[in-house]
Write a protein that binds this DNA or RNA. Sequence first.
DNA 1: ATATATGCAAACTCTTTGCATCGTT
DNA 2: AACGATGCAAAGAGTTTGCATATAT
Lengths: 143, 143
Amino acid sequence: MKPAAVKEKLKEAGMKITPQRIAVLQALVDNHHHPSAEELIKIIRQIHPNISVGTVYQILNTLVSKKVIGKIETDDNVVRYDAIIEKHYHLYLDNKQKILDYFDDGLTEIIMNYLNRNDKLKNMNIEDVNIQIIGRSKKHQGN
Amino acid sequence: MKPAAVKEKLKEAGMKITPQRIAVLQALVDNHHHPSAEELIKIIRQIHPNISVGTVYQILNTLVSKKVIGKIETDDNVVRYDAIIEKHYHLYLDNKQKILDYFDDGLTEIIMNYLNRNDKLKNMNIEDVNIQIIGRSKKHQGN
DNA sequence: ATATATGCAAACTCTTTGCATCGTT
DNA sequence: AACGATGCAAAGAGTTTGCATATAT
């Protein structure tokens, strides 16, 4: 993604445009592998060797709170980030080594309809559903 | 749950029966609120004031690896534990302050059938699906 | 000019590890 | 008696915080 577009995203979020923020957001947008903060820092330091860990965390938190980016919770207890904020799910492949995006509004609808008809849940308003699909690639299938 | 039953679970898992292990498992089994390690330590220390943090973590890890208990990943980046290992989902209520169990094999089946028919996923073997249902209690509904 | 972001280091939380001691089988 | 579990303290990740300095608007 072009730097100009990255800047535009920051501007839309009402954030001041700084080189660090551009670098963080750019790194995330260009890496579709749902990097952790640590991975992002490595990537960003290739260009901004002096950026500090605290700054990156702070920028990421700000971006999340402004809904410019998303957070994914994985079960290795490390927070990962996601440049895509449209509703989508994640495929955890091959012992969760690979995390792929999975867009499927139809699935959301089916689940929502099902849940909303469920008497067991009539005491709650369902706001959202998250799904993790765990599996294994069919090619080079180990084990 | 009675201590005898707790011991039985440990025995079935092939674990040595120690007072600490009984205490940890008992505390988890009796607290259906998906406690974190820290919360468990507090509970356990009411009876075993001297149990060490490291021991509790180690016992929890052993229990998880022997599939006596389960782990839940939450997005506060704290691991929570679950005495129930049968397949079930979680309802995150009221800003995720409350986590309730939700059993629904029908839902699992619907999703699995749907996913298995999906061409986009034909390159993977789907092994499991996890769902988090996020919502709000209808009573005392704030905001 | 003002408000806000950054850099840095230190602090904090949660979890793991190493090793001597102790308890279960 | 042998093996494995515990206690303790220290180390280790990952993340947050505080404050002086620098930068964007």
